[in-house]
Write a protein that binds this DNA or RNA. Structure first.
Lengths: 158, 158
DNA sequence: CCTCAGTCGTTGACACGTGAATCGTACGGG
DNA sequence: CCCGTACGATTCACGTGTCAACGACTGAGG
């Protein structure tokens, strides 16, 4: 027998809880994104970009500013914007103040797509996620997420 | 004013809880997979395939049997096995009983990679996920996941 | 000025995921 | 025995993600 100061690996139950949790909420996310896509043709990434742009001054943002805001790699954003531009959701124009950069502008069509998608999307979140849980369970999830963020030293706002 | 029988969209707090939860545990998953990859060069997908194969009779399985077991699309598995085969983790051989099919066999190297990765992987799950939470919080997560699965009519084992 | 380190955005190579089409084989019914 | 349908596995086209390398440009210093 060893003298475990502290168990180094999860118990069977802890491991089962981990798998159940992560697999379940992966399905939840997929369902919500699938509904968004069926309703409006937008992916989760599209929605996130459109949300940020529609809240921005002049419905436009510098590309790396946008990337920082939604916490994406710049290369990821670049590729995504290329696909969104092909579909007419955004437009890229050269930036006056800094010839290296570019401004990402929300098009009329992009704004329309975002607005018509919002309500059904929120409903999907309610149907699939919120309504699955009691208010106490939801509060517990929020607390667990907050504790996890502290544990990982996320949100070091200072 | 309307007469909402039942709110159709989430409240601000519910929406915030949803976003906090999903974003946090996405980061948790990414951290655990990054540690797995750093420790052993395996991705989460590799690990799942190797786990299933190492528990299978003769360390081998029919391809669609394996796909069903780990709940993957067959095309996804096919592509993934191609990459794993290039790296020598698995081998595919024609199937005796059914010339359409193929058997996926765990190689010695695959078995070795799986075994050396398991302990560090479990430790990562403990460090990053389990140790972030109190036992009560972990139980709450498990209950919330179970409730969600019922809500979505998953696990209809009948 | 001019140099040069650093930033902006894109690109390339790759891993990974989905759904539709494909191709060969299996097998039950004429 | 052959035919048509069903099935196993792969392939294709595409969307999505990472990281490293790149070319264009900026801006602080000599």
């Amino acid at each position: 027998m060893d003298h475990p100061r502290r168990r180094q690996v999860p118990t069977h139950d802890e491991l089962a809880a981990w798998r159940l949790h992560i697999e379940t909420f992966e399905i939840v996310r997929a369902r919500i994104e699938a509904r968004l896509h069926d309703d409006s043709g937008l992916s989760g990434g599209d929605y996130r970009v459109l949300l940020a742009l529609s809240e921005a001054d002049g419905r436009a943002m510098r590309s790396s500013e946008l990337a920082a805001h939604i916490e994406w790699e710049r290369s990821r954003l670049s590729g995504h914007l290329g696909r969104m531009e092909r579909r007419g959701l955004v437009r890229r124009e050269p930036c006056a103040e800094d010839a290296r950069g570019s401004r990402v502008v929300l098009t009329e069509e992009g704004a329309r797509a975002f607005h018509t998608s919002t309500l059904p999307h929120l409903r999907a979140i309610k149907d699939v996620f919120v309504d699955a849980l009691t208010p106490e369970q939801l509060a517990h999830l929020r607390d667990a997420a907050a504790a996890t963020r502290r544990h990982l030293h996320l949100d070091e706002r200072s």
